[in-house]
Write a protein that binds this DNA or RNA. Structure first.
Lengths: 284, 284
DNA sequence: TATTCCGATAGTGAC
DNA sequence: GTCACTATCGGAATGAG
């Protein structure tokens, strides 16, 4: 499976079965291999792991259960198949969310002692913040690429690009036509009050199409100020997002992310509506 | 089936299967036959049925659906089997509640034009009130008798009486021993805000054991001032029970009718507790 | 508070 | 706001030619 095969469980969806999608190269063992080194990974200079003592008593290994489940990925990224761990390096592990709330939903997990802090505190460190921001951008581009791979064939804006890709149109330049700005369709951020104890940056498509999208709070956690962009850190002293409960972000009326229609608390009707918006969105 | 077989659907409960219960005489066709005549039924002198004309325009028979469902019983009591209509006369129909909230749960339905009024207004007529009170007492005694029939064999207070009944003890008097005061175990009243439009007096055992007892409001409607005894009518001008919603009777914490334990809103736990209380109650 | 169906809401427990 | 399970709470329909 290729590095961009972010959600292989979707590999046999209708689109891919139809054969019009470019088949991802079978890249065996990518889950256990080191990621390619590039300008981005080079930025993050590897540091000695032992230099950072775990806050926890090392005689009692962490349990990685329930709210600590994400710790297992940063502790042992090679334990996971490539459809779970997208890539990892000394400082980060990128995974596909086990309970995706959109068709593409990844998490960036910093491998840092600061990951056990609340995100607001963790990202007060300028150097750490910069590294997280940079790696997040990298993952964001990867997710955008995956969106193009999955949905480009439906996209009006990608029409010319797709035609060139499929050898159905002439194109003189060595670069493909730019096509749709898929990065604009990617949400990036950290939950104002995470339920999982290890720092994780959500990087996901904005469609909100998933069987795991089940409650109002799921939806509002990605479609309200509850999702704090990494670019917004460090958070100002009196930023209201420091008190997400007080602000009631998660209990707000359900508003379609695309057309703004208000569904009140009728989650199921929102879901039905999102299915329709999804089809239109792909065709943009 | 006998006249006191108020709930034949219970005919094959554990107790009766065990054979310790006096088997009700197999009275074929009782559903369409008149009940046995006894001192009680004799009290209610039969009057010409035509004397009680249906209030409604007979050209448009009313729906008898939903909130008007009880009207069918007073309009045509003979249309029902004897396990539904317990007895009827010109002025009243007594039925087994279709959705009993206790092991014995009957309704007294006055066959009067006033039955379409709100109970508070309907029972402002002294003569009508007196007749309802008298007939209610009659039904209450019938229900008490049924309780004795069903549960006397478990009752400590009924022990001597049961022994005589079963020929297991000597008893010189022609009258049986009095035994337990089963009338004290019977609730009688009218809901402060009925959902069914036809006047109906609830006459039921206090056990609250029934699969139809399904939520807090069911329970509180029989275990709070929401149940207004017919003896309390006519209601004083400022009686708080004229405004049951304002008083919040139905939304109160769940309190066991027998021991007073507070179950808050935990209805299921109350139900489990009531099962235990039921066993102890029978043995009193 | 008639029932019934569906769905939204709330608390818990997770080793 | 992790999930999954259970239970509680809440609104709307309820028929028929």
């Amino acid at each position: 499976m290729s590095t961009t095969d972010l959600d292989p469980e979707d590999a046999i969806t209708k689109e891919e079965i139809s054969g019009t999608a470019p088949a991802p190269s079978e890249n065996a063992g990518v889950g256990n291999s080191k990621p390619q080194r590039n300008a981005f990974t080079e930025l993050m200079a590897p540091k000695p792991k032992a230099a950072a003592p775990p806050k926890q008593d090392s005689s009692k290994p962490r349990s990685f259960r329930d709210r600590d489940g994400l710790g297992a990925y940063t502790a042992n990224p090679t334990n996971y198949p490539s459809n779970r761990v997208i890539y990892h390096n000394d400082d980060f592990v990128a995974i596909n969310d086990l309970y995706p709330k959109s068709t593409v939903h990844t998490l960036l997990l910093p491998r840092s002692d600061r990951s056990r802090l609340h995100p607001v505190e963790a990202l007060e460190d300028p150097q750490f913040l910069a590294s997280v921001q940079a790696e997040t951008l990298k993952l964001k581009k990867l997710v955008a690429k995956e969106l193009q791979r999955r949905y480009g064939k439906f996209s009006e804006a990608d029409k010319q690009r797709e035609a060139v890709l499929n050898g159905e149109a002439e194109w003189d330049s060595p670069e493909l036509p730019n096509g749709r700005d898929w990065e604009a369709e990617v949400l990036v951020g950290i939950h104002a009050h995470p339920s999982m104890n290890d720092l994780h940056v959500h990087v996901l498509s904005r469609d909100m199409i998933s069987e795991c999208m089940r409650h109002r709070k799921h939806f509002n956690s990605f479609n309200s100020p509850f999702l704090v962009d990494v670019a917004d850190f460090p958070l100002a002293k009196h930023d209201p997002r420091r008190h997400p409960g007080r602000e009631g972000y998660l209990d707000r009326d359900l508003l379609c992310w695309r057309c703004g229609e208000n569904f009140g608390n009728r989650f199921k009707r929102l879901k039905e509506h999102l299915d329709i918006e999804f089809e239109a969105w792909k065709k943009q």
